[in-house]
């Protein structure tokens, strides 16, 4: 179940990208996304080279990166088709009211590349960083927002708990579903109403167990004197190493190159 969603699926490997500070990877992903919208035409060559270099460095098989695309391919095709037929400009092909323009082809291609690269870029981050490290990074990066009373720590804690529980609850759903199937439950046939009704034997035990787990966790946290973020320190605080600073430098150079390409050369 949900096997195709790579986002949130850590791929363990011993690589430079895996070792980077999660904050670098978070910022890097943002910079990469920004660069995708800066590029106009030939700039995408730079984006491609950068993307594939990082993939090589990460030692994650390309297949895993592409798996994330399965979740969005309908959106991808939809976007490209709309752009292809609805863009005004020099007509190169016409059939009734349908027409394709030179500009349409360009926009469709650009949109397609942007979407694909965006998903792959995010997949690199989630495949090389454990969800817990990612929430640590966000907590650390958004800490300044506490000044304006955003409960940064609490949000990060909720996120890491949710992330921790997603696989557990998915496994539980699978187990309950099988247990009911063993009693002859049928989830596949029938009309919509019958199918929704067939979910009750799964949902009731699932909620009961989710509440039980939440209760246990709250108790365990209280037993260890958890009282929110104030004054709380970390067992493994995030500390920048020299390789992280080097990575920031590379990222800045990349962003600068992207902007120069666009602003000066109009690529």
């Amino acid at each position: 179940m949900f096997k195709d969603i790579t986002i949130g699926q850590y791929y363990p490997a011993d690589s430079l990208i895996h070792k980077l500070d999660p904050r670098v990877k978070f910022v890097g992903t943002l910079i990469y996304i920004i660069s995708l919208f800066v590029f106009h035409t030939w700039g995408y060559v730079l984006g491609t080279v950068f993307l594939f270099s990082v993939i090589r460095l990460s030692k994650v098989p390309l297949g895993f990166m592409l798996r994330g695309l399965k979740a969005i391919w309908i959106l991808l095709i939809f976007t490209m088709v709309l752009n292809l037929f609805l863009t005004q400009g020099t007509v190169v092909w016409q059939f009734g009211i349908l027409h394709i323009t030179r500009e349409g082809i360009g926009t469709a291609a650009k949109m397609g590349i942007r979407l694909v690269y965006l998903i792959i870029g995010c997949s690199i981050m989630t495949l090389t960083t454990t969800p817990n490290k990612l929430t640590d990074a966000m907590e650390s990066l958004f800490r300044p927002l506490r000044k304006v009373h955003v409960p940064v720590h609490e949000i990060a804690m909720m996120m890491s708990i949710a992330l921790r529980f997603i696989p557990i609850l998915m496994e539980e759903t699978d187990k309950i579903k099988k247990a009911q199937m063993a009693r002859g439950a049928d989830f596949e046939s029938g009309n919509v109403i019958q199918r929704v009704k067939a979910m009750v034997p799964i949902l009731v035990p699932l909620f009961v167990s989710a509440f039980r787990r939440a209760n246990d966790l709250a108790l365990a946290m209280e037993a260890r004197c958890y009282h929110g973020g104030d004054g709380r320190t970390q067992m493994r605080p995030l500390v920048y190493q020299s390789r992280d600073l080097a990575a920031y430098a590379v990222l800045l150079a990349y962003l600068a190159a992207a902007i120069v390409l666009r602003a000066v050369l109009h690529w």
């Binding site: 539980e172 187990k175 309950i176 099988k178 247990a179 009911q180 199937m181 063993a182 009693r183 002859g184 049928d186 009750v200 034997p201 009731v204 035990p205 009961v208 167990s209």
Partner: peptide, 20 residues
């Protein structure tokens, strides 16, 4: 296979979690 499951009854571990 659905009919098979009526002939081969399977009680999972911690089956009490399937009551609804």
């Amino acid at each position: 296979r659905r009919n098979l499951r009526f002939h081969v009854g399977l009680v999972f571990q911690y089956p009490e979690y399937q009551l609804f």
